[in-house]
Write a protein that binds this DNA or RNA. Structure first.
Length: 494
DNA sequence: CCGGGATTAAATGATATCAG
DNA sequence: CTGATATCATTTAATCCCGG
């Protein structure tokens, strides 16, 4: 067999005689010369000499060797980072698909909170009671239907939750009972609760609270007096105000922020005083550094707490989860962190995915282990570039870890299947059903038709084992060591 | 602080797939 | 078939981390 031209001609590592070499046409030889010039090596000199001697020169070489040699990518690698401009080209952003949006099914999710709304067959009485929408309209004429009632309350509430609920309700093609809508009784109660609605309303109308404005005027007129919150609230009530003391103080504080200060101490009524008079009471320090220092202390405390909680919840090192759901994803997240996040934004609550993501990222960074969610995301991303990119942001595991998971999963599954013994006739009759099926336009053969057979193998009786498995099925698989995941032990074939 | 194992990013090589 | 590109596993040097 003729040796590969590239075997001793370049720095490429040619597989040598391991594979058959191919005939290389004269045309291709010329392209090799071109690339050789670009690479600035001595191959083009050699080849051009040979070509002069024999204008119809052909060579023997491995196809892949030529591909590697002439690949733009390899040329770029070879020529170093001189033209690294293209290197920094950012990878295309991931496509936004419809299924990346949170899905809502009337049959599975609560109409109001949007969370899973299904009875647990094992514990039917556990959790909030589930109500199924049964009737379309009220019997009495003139009574608003359940649907229009909800829409009315949505209008009254006017908050984010109401917006979501309205989208759901209006999205129902027909009546709610027709789409088998359901909801948690508690959620419904919370939703229609008058107090909650009033609370939302009062929040909105704070700015136009006449009683508060009058109170502010009153306080302004008596600049030299010192008020405590109880006195202020009494005056406020006299003016016809209707919100609680604490909230009133907060609102008043923001209204009078430029002229008055509020001095508060835990368990004592807050004191409001004009800034000019405050120094009589307490020596005021307008020191930014001091404020920052106390901030530092607070942040330090919270950080330490979150760190400890995260460490307590670190995922087991030797196990991988094989299932993924919100519960598993939330497990490693520090509750304090969630509290903090919820304070920052209402869209970062305990239940929402971004908060879970942030929590997982933090736990992973603190404990230096990948949480199940990160591994899951890594597997989902699949593409190496994506994984590398997202891993830089620590939103998924490293590519290596993903490989390791796959390898662990494969080996674990292999041993499990081995034990199943579906094809062992001693466990019961093995039944095989086959049928051919019609052409699928996507998978046609050369004759533009498919000739495919579907096969189903079952065994009655062998399900016993599976059912047992289901009861307390091990939801984890062992995490193999690096070495074991790379060089799998081949199963013994008997 | 240090040593050694574990992990990682980047480079590389091999093969598959795409497009003309 | 050719050339370009995508995909993927592996190697390697650098870095990290943990226990002593």
């Amino acid at each position: 067999m003729d040796p590969c031209f590239f075997a001793d001609n370049s720095h490429l590592s040619c597989p040598g005689s391991a594979k058959e070499t191919n005939n290389i046409t004269t045309k291709r030889v010329r392209t090799i010369i071109d690339y050789s010039k670009r690479r600035d090596d001595d191959i083009h000199d050699q080849l051009e000499k040979k070509l002069l001697e024999n204008p119809t020169l052909t060579l023997r070489a491995h196809h892949s060797c030529i591909l590697t040699y002439t690949s733009k990518e390899h040329c770029r690698r070879h020529s170093g980072k001189s033209d690294s401009g293209t290197l920094n080209a950012t990878p295309s952003s991931p496509k936004r698909t419809r299924h990346s949006e949170k899905l809502f099914h009337f049959q599975f999710n609560c109409l109001f909170c949007g969370n899973l709304c299904k009875e647990d067959p094992k514990h039917p009485n556990r959790g909030s009671k589930i109500v199924y929408c049964r009737t379309g309209d009220r019997k009495e004429i003139g009574q608003a239907s359940f649907k229009s009632n909800i829409l009315r309350i949505c209008h009254e509430r006017g908050d984010e939750l109401a917006r979501q609920v309205r989208t759901r309700v209006e999205g129902a093609v027909s009546d709610l009972h027709a789409v088998e809508a359901r909801y948690h009784l508690d959620c419904y109660k919370k939703f229609i609760n008058k107090k909650n609605i009033d609370h939302l309303k009062s929040e909105k109308t704070d700015e136009t609270d006449q009683a508060l404005i009058m109170l502010a005027d009153y306080v302004n007129q008596h600049q030299h007096e010192i008020w405590n919150s109880l006195e202020l609230h009494n005056v406020y009530l006299e003016y016809g105000g209707n919100i609680k003391r604490k909230r009133m103080m907060l609102n008043l504080k923001t209204m009078l922020a430029s002229t008055h200060v509020v001095l508060s101490c835990h368990n004592y009524a807050s004191i409001m005083v004009h800034k000019s008079g405050a120094n009589k009471l307490i020596k005021l320090v307008d020191d930014k550094d001091a404020a920052e220092e106390t901030d530092d202390v607070y942040i330090g405390n919270i950080a330490a707490k979150i760190k400890n909680e995260s460490k307590d919840r670190q995922p087991e090192n030797g196990k991988y989860n094989i299932r993924m759901n919100k519960d598993i994803a939330t497990r490693p997240v520090s509750p304090t962190l969630i509290k903090l996040l919820t304070r920052i934004s209402k869209s970062l609550t305990y239940e929402c995915l971004p908060a879970i993501m942030i929590g997982n990222m933090i736990t992973s960074l603190v404990t230096n282990r990948y949480t199940p969610l990160l591994v899951d995301l890594g597997v989902k991303l699949k593409d190496r570039n994506m994984i590398d990119t997202m891993h830089q942001y620590h939103t998924c595991c490293s590519y290596d870890e993903m490989l390791r998971f796959k390898s662990s999963a494969a080996q674990s599954e292999e041993s499990r299947i081995g034990k199943q013994g579906l094809f062992n006739q001693e466990n019961g009759l093995v039944q095989v059903m086959t049928d051919n099926f019609d052409a699928n336009i996507c998978s046609q053969n050369g004759l533009k038709s498919t000739h495919a057979i579907a096969m189903l193998i079952t065994q009655y009786g062998s399900s016993n084992e599976v059912e047992n498995d289901d009861e307390d099925f091990d939801l984890t698989i062992p995490r193999l060591t690096k070495q074991a995941s790379r060089s799998p032990e081949l199963p013994d074939i008997e």
